[in-house]
């Protein structure tokens, strides 16, 4: 099938395509899930990002 010499390589080819489809489907289903809505969460993010920026500047 598909001109391959053995089933293992065909399986690898299909594994690549299958894994990509899994990623796409998972991402689309969860596209809007997991956003930080709480102000405390956003504040935590900001505090972390500010320290990160300081480290980046030092480097």
């Amino acid at each position: 099938m598909l001109g391959f010499g053995d089933g293992w390589v065909l399986a690898a080819y299909l594994f690549c395509v299958g894994s990509t489809i899994l990623c796409v489907v998972y991402g689309i289903i969860n596209w809007n899930r997991g956003a930080d809505k709480e102000p405390t969460q956003i504040q935590e993010e900001v505090a972390w990002a500010e320290t990160e920026k300081k480290i980046e500047e030092e480097v």
Binding site: S19, T20, C23, A35
Partner: peptide
């Protein structure tokens, strides 16, 4: 750690999957 929320990670799964297929594949 530099990602802003889990939502961005969810979305990145789509792009990451397609992108890796196109690069290494």
């Amino acid at each position: 750690m530099t990602v802003k929320s889990n939502r961005e990670l969810n979305r990145a799964v789509v792009s990451g999957g397609v992108f890796i297929l196109m690069m290494t594949g």
